[in-house]
Design a protein around this nucleic acid. Structure first.
Length: 1003
RNA sequence: GGGCGUGUAGCUCAGUUGGUCAGAGCAUGCGCUUGAUAAGCGCAGGGUCACUGGUUCAAGUCCAGUCACGCCCA
């Protein structure tokens, strides 16, 4: 009976499921990884191996993991898994950024909603405790979500910027900056809520319509009697702070005669201005180009001082106003920047209550008239005392040309709902152009550190590594900005245009305002003396760091100024005594930017061996060897390209200033998530209900599984934008199935293969097996190179195409016959099994960084696998090259295959044959390929999957194939058409080859 | 408005220094197979390489400009 013969075949069998069911099965594997401490096992196995340190940029501990954040972590995981697979010791210490406004804002909002203290009256310590609880809650949430993505790391010991030790190290780094003279006190305008008596952040202001007084004011020019420029403003109360007027150098200005006075305004805006100011009868005297205004000076309309005109092309527009913008550097951001450029005082004659006051920025006689003092800016019933008083002054002096109500969008305090003002406040700054010297900084801090005896101090940054090693100036005088730019050149930036981004960020950045009037942050341990003068001293900061390391930073907010001063005042203190403490916190970019000190230097597992070579990847041959890299310097930072101006910059500046070197050797950046229309996706759109697409990582993982998400991440060139769309992910899922099926096919044909017993040596492998191993070896080299360049999309493409073409369409298709029909232990079958075993082993390893779950799942089915998990394996590609003649032979055979397949297809269309095994092929030709075919007829027959092939060498000419139906009868076992079917009496339906196979089995 | 990027078949990507470079895989359509079967194989149709001008004997490949999108500034 024919069906019996099926039992004599070696049909594939495996428990490796065809259906992945990732959503259900991945969590089980994850649980096993965790129970078996996989990360720790990998680390232990790599102890002593060369280090590869990728330092995690801390995501904000707020909300679910966004798909964009998932992309970032997955990319990091690709690299770390790859490095570990290649034998590196590649630890991963994940981190979280915990402080900052979004959390404080949310927490205070919730407190208010829940009937808590209104208007932010809650004390800082209470708010801070709530903030910490909030951050810790989301750290837990995000930790689970990151782990679910298959990201391995030291999740039990992440770094948190709210950890006491972190905060302490951050302050120690800050103390170094203070000691080296980087930190100074200056002024900068901030949003200020008068009723709440507090500074507001951008996120805390809401824009609402508001009616302001719109006024046009004369500013008489010095040396041009009877001539004034005209400015327009909607905040009359800022006029006492006016120190300059801005024009646009690209505009055309008109000088117009009105009665006996001359006014200068933008020519384009003249008609509007003339109408507003009721210049019924005016004439244009002449035109001025913008640059002709640059030397002009004016007299303040009601203060005894003069000001100058400056170009402000960036913000002086030709749409509203007069073409002249009144500048009060203490009351506006653009004003502030222009003021800085021209060395104007950041003058802000408004006190905490929002009332006019004199300050010591200007001589008293130059400040506002006494009639204005004490007037409040805050509106009551739509009227502002300050505005009214200013208008009165202007009217009294005939300076007011026009006044009308004006409705526009204006920032309001989110809590009190009142209009906010922009007001300059004292702030701490880091001076970017600080002059630095080439010699190492004094060790003054170290002695104090030793004395304190509190806590442990992070590794000293100085010891064997000179500060600012990259300095080239011999005169010993360079600015810190120049040092930073030089250091940037020593870092490898991928993609290479990244260096432009970071350089322009460093080149153009202003001094770094590092103080915030917020509660949820690391306190700036400064005091004030009886005169309100600040006390900021490196020794005090270090003692505060020790205190905070012991008690947490809430100690700063809970203890009184006197208590703190008593604890922190150095014994030999000569300076003024403190009477109050600072309540400012550090900019959160100082938090995350300090991780070089608080994490890279702190954690033993992140240290490179001392004899560490200069960073791999940079340093050209022939170039003088640069200073050895410090052992704590990370091999890589990997974040979105927005971080050039963010974390990359803050980390670089802080580490260079305090540790003497950049914290990274290589910086890799990725693009951003965009949707199918290549428009950005954002959480806010989602929140507004306009977006139904889920944008949390979990939403994708729960629908497709982590491996599909990971494969999708790998499939696109992350240096550009990454398209997230259902269509795209479904395509990737399709590729996943193809890969999974190929693995399954390979595993299913190894059920009776024991590599120790059955493996066939290379030189005894069949030609086809040697061919695929050579192809695989090329793939391996390509994939390895792509991984090393971090081009995962190339890995994806190469792997997917290899699986689809070389494996599925060719090799796997062809070897079915030998695997199924040869005797189980025939040399030919064992040769092919040896090859499959090698392929599946290599594929699992190659796939492991990307398909973290699936590669590990398949690995468990590989006979004689060398390690328990694929992630513990050491991937060492085995080159396999064909001899030259062998390679040429296969090249010929595949050329012929290309010609034969269309002929077979034609025959199929003509209903001459169905499957290829029903065909008899005749090849006729005279070229080299045909000669090869004659010599290797059986190999070609097998490659074409036909039952019969005849080769006829015939003069010249390119090869031609003729298709006919195969001769003989179909063998019931192997389905070949053979002329010897029926020749054996015992097996009348079998061909000779099958008779042999069957009898061998039976015997 | 400025800086930095990106723009090749429906999708994701290859296309070194300008001259068979218009390719691959997937998807689609049409067949075949039913011993990888919620699988497998074959064949076919798809692109004026964003657009417009230049340089050149010759340009996805160099230059300029335009448009669209992204990031960062303003």
């Amino acid at each position: 009976m024919a069906t019996d013969y099926k039992q004599t075949l070696n049909l594939p069998r495996t428990d490796f499921p065809m259906k992945a069911d990732l959503v259900a099965r991945e969590p089980q594997r994850l649980a096993r990884w965790q129970a078996g401490r996989l990360y720790e096992r990998i680390q232990a196995a790599r102890a002593g191996a060369p280090k590869f340190v990728l330092h995690d940029g801390p995501p904000f501990a707020n909300g679910d993991v966004h798909i964009g954040t998932a992309l970032n972590k997955i990319l990091k995981d690709f690299i770390l898994k790859f490095k570990a697979l290649r034998g590196f010791d590649a630890p991963f210490v994940p981190g979280w950024d915990c402080h900052g406004l979004p959390i404080e804002f949310k927490v205070t909002q919730d407190m208010q909603k829940n009937g808590g203290p209104a208007r932010g009256a809650a004390d800082a310590a209470t708010v801070r405790r709530a903030c910490e609880a909030y951050a810790r809650k989301y750290i837990e949430v995000q930790r689970a979500q990151f782990q679910r993505l298959g990201v391995l790391g030291d999740w039990a010991r992440p770094y948190l910027t709210l950890d006491r030790q972190y905060e302490a190290d951050e302050l120690r780094l800050f103390a170094d900056l203070v000691e080296r003279g980087f930190v100074y006190r200056g002024k900068k305008p901030v949003y200020w809520s008068i009723p709440c008596r507090t500074a507001l952040a951008e996120a805390e202001v809401e824009y609402r319509d508001h009616v302001s007084p719109s006024i046009y004011v004369k500013f008489p020019l010095v040396g041009h009697p009877g001539t004034s420029v005209v400015i327009w403003t909607t905040t009359p109360w800022t006029l006492p702070a006016n120190l300059a007027v801005a024009y646009n150098s690209t505009f055309d200005y008109a000088v117009v005669l009105v009665g006996r006075e001359q006014f200068i305004v933008s020519a384009l805006l003249l008609p509007t201005v003339a109408q507003k100011c009721a210049w019924g009868d005016y004439q244009i005297v002449r035109h001025l180009r913008g640059e002709e205004l640059s030397q002009l000076e004016y007299t303040h309309p009601f203060c005894a001082r003069t000001g100058r005109l400056f170009a402000g092309d960036a913000f002086v527009d030709n749409v509203t106003g007069t073409g002249f913008v009144h500048i009060a550097p203490g009351h506006g951001l653009e004003d502030y920047q222009l003021g800085l450029e021209h060395g104007l005082p950041i003058y802000s004659p408004v006190n905490d209550d929002g009332a006019f006051t004199h300050t010591n920025d200007l001589p008293l006689e130059q400040q506002m008239p006494a009639t204005l003092l004490g007037k409040s800016i805050l509106e009551t019933n739509g009227e502002s005392e300050a505005n009214a008083a200013v208008l009165a002054e202007l009217r009294a002096r005939g300076a007011l040309l026009h006044h009308e109500p004006y409705t526009h969008s204006y920032p309001h305090c989110w809590r009190s709902k009142t209009p906010v003002i922009f007001r300059a406040m004292d702030q701490w700054f880091i001076e970017i152009d600080h002059e630095v010297v080439n010699s190492p900084a004094s060790a003054a801090g170290a002695t104090e550190k030793d004395k304190s005896g509190l806590g442990q101090t992070a590794q000293s940054p100085s010891a064997p590594f000179p500060l600012f090693p990259s300095a080239s100036a011999s005169d010993g005088h360079t600015t810190f900005r120049q040092r930073a730019l030089a250091e940037i050149d020593r870092v490898e930036w991928i993609p290479d245009w990244g260096i432009n981004r970071i350089k322009s960020a460093v080149q153009t950045r202003p001094d770094w305002c590092i103080s915030r009037q917020r509660a949820w942050g690391v306190p700036i341990p400064a005091f004030f003396d009886a005169h309100g003068e600040p006390i900021l001293d490196a020794r005090i900061v270090r003692r505060a760091a020790d205190l905070i390391e012991q008690h947490g930073s809430n100690v700063w907010f809970e203890k009184s100024a006197a208590e703190l001063w008593a604890l922190l005042r150095p014994a030999d203190w000569q300076g003024p005594e403190a009477v109050s403490k600072s309540t400012d916190t550090l900019d959160v970019w100082i938090d995350s930017g300090s991780s070089s000190r608080a994490v890279l230097m702190r954690r033993a597992e992140l240290q490179h061996a001392r004899q560490s070579q200069p960073g791999q990847g940079h340093g050209q041959p022939g170039e003088p060897s640069p200073v050895a890299s410090p052992p704590w310097q990370a091999d890589m930072y990997l974040e979105g390209s927005d971080q050039h101006r963010g974390w990359f910059q803050s980390s670089l500046l802080l580490s260079l200033a305090a540790n003497g070197a950049a914290p990274f050797r290589t910086v890799l950046t990725h693009g951003f998530m965009v949707d199918a229309d290549r428009e950005k996706i954002s959480k806010s759109q989602q929140a507004q209900g306009g977006y139904e697409k889920p944008q949390t990582a979990d939403a994708y993982v729960n629908r497709w599984g982590a491996d599909i998400v990971r494969l999708w991440v790998s499939s696109q060139d992350f240096r550009n934008d990454i398209v997230v769309s259902e269509e795209r992910i479904n395509k990737v899922a399709e590729t996943y199935r193809v890969i999974r099926n190929a693995l399954r096919y390979q595993l299913s044909n190894l059920y009776d293969f024991d590599p120790g017993r059955d493996a066939v040596p290379d030189e005894q492998l069949t030609g086809l097996d040697r061919w695929i191993l050579a192809e695989f070896s090329k793939l391996e080299a390509d994939v390895l190179a792509a991984y090393e360049r971090y081009e995962f999309h190339v890995v994806y493409q190469k792997l997917a195409q290899f699986v689809a073409v070389e494996l599925s369409a060719i090799y796997h298709d062809v070897i079915k016959d030998r695997l199924y029909t040869d005797a189980p232990d025939s040399p030919r079958r064992r040769s092919t099994q040896t090859t499959l075993h090698r392929l599946v082993t290599g594929l699992c390893q190659m796939l492991a960084p990307i398909l973290a779950f699936t590669a590990d799942e398949a690995w468990e089915f590989v006979p004689g696998r060398p390690t328990d998990s694929v992630h513990e394996a050491h991937w060492q590609p085995r080159p396999f090259a064909l001899r030259e003649d062998e390679a040429l032979c296969w090249q010929h055979l595949f050329e012929l295959r290309e010609r034969a397949l269309p002929e077979l297809e034609k025959a199929r269309q003509a209903k001459l044959i169905g499957k290829a095994l029903e065909a008899r092929l005749t090849l006729r030709g005279g070229d080299a390929a045909t000669r090869t075919a004659q010599a290797h007829g059986e190999a070609l027959r097998e490659l074409l999957n036909v039952s019969q092939l005849t080769v006829q060498l015939d003069g010249e000419g390119s090869p031609q194939f003729l298709v006919a139906h195969a001769d003989g009868q179909k063998c019931a076992r192997c389905w070949h058409w053979e002329t010897d079917v029926g020749a054996h009496a015992g097996h009348p339906t079998l061909c000779g080859r099958c008779v042999a196979a069957v009898e061998r089995c039976a015997g």
